[in-house]
């Protein structure tokens, strides 16, 4: 128990290290507002629009999207949540290795997909509070297609304002990856080290 607590704390510590503001001002922890959530997604969308209109080759776009994920997404919580209850049994080192491998996997996989937004335009619509976090709605307009909704879920509970899910036409990145990572782990007979190994090359 104390062992897992320590590893959890270390994991959380890493996650929140950059957001030491939250430690200094505990009252800030739940001070995320619609405006702040929206401000974060305004930045994300500005960056996305810059990349999809840049006209650069795919490899450059993937790199740029990786950067967007690293900068604005709470990848550790997405990673943990994708693993579900199995995350509990991991050692601190395993968890760090897993989160790291997952980060590479997810940024490669979704970076590639953003290629389909090429020439499109993303617009931020509005923000609202949901439970302990905020949902920011955006609209994507692609050539020859009716506009569709992409929603970002934003939380500051990592210590920074970050998005922890991106929902494209109802399809949640986090829930889809929960399904995928679960299947990957099953295929490997629950062997987490093997999963970590394979995630490094997946996506």
């Amino acid at each position: 128990m104390s062992n897992t607590m320590t590893s959890r704390r270390r994991f959380l510590g890493t996650t929140a290290a950059a957001g030491s503001v939250a430690l200094l001002l505990p009252g800030m922890a739940h001070a995320l507002t619609d405006a702040r959530a929206r401000a974060l997604i305004d930045q994300v969308v500005a960056d996305i629009n810059r990349v999809i209109s840049s006209g650069q080759p795919l490899s450059g776009m993937i790199r740029d999207f990786e950067r967007i994920f690293e900068r604005y997404a709470d990848v550790p919580i997405i990673a943990r949540s994708a693993l579900g209850p199995d995350a509990r049994g991991l050692s601190g080192a395993q968890l760090n290795a897993y989160v790291d491998a997952f980060k590479g996997y997810i940024t490669r996989k979704y970076g590639k997909r953003f290629n389909e937004f090429k020439g499109g335009q993303v617009t931020v619509k509005d923000a609202r509070k949901v439970k302990t976090f905020h949902e920011v709605r955006t609209t994507v307009k692609l050539r020859g297609e009716a506009p569709f909704e992409v929603n970002f879920l934003v939380s500051d509970r990592s210590g920074r304002d970050l998005f922890f899910d991106m929902i494209i036409e109802g399809i949640s990145l986090r829930l889809s990856e929960k399904e995928e990572i679960g299947a990957m782990l099953d295929r490997r007979g629950g062997n987490i080290n093997q999963l970590i190994q394979d995630l490094r090359n997946a996506g």
């Binding site: 704390r9 959380l12 939250a22 919580i77 943990r80 990592s158 922890f164 899910d165």
Partner: peptide, 20 residues
Amino acid sequence: PYGDADSDPYDSAYSDPYED
């Protein structure tokens, strides 16, 4: 995923990261 025990029991470790 940050720990609403009702909706996602998996992530109870995150129930209150700041307390930790």
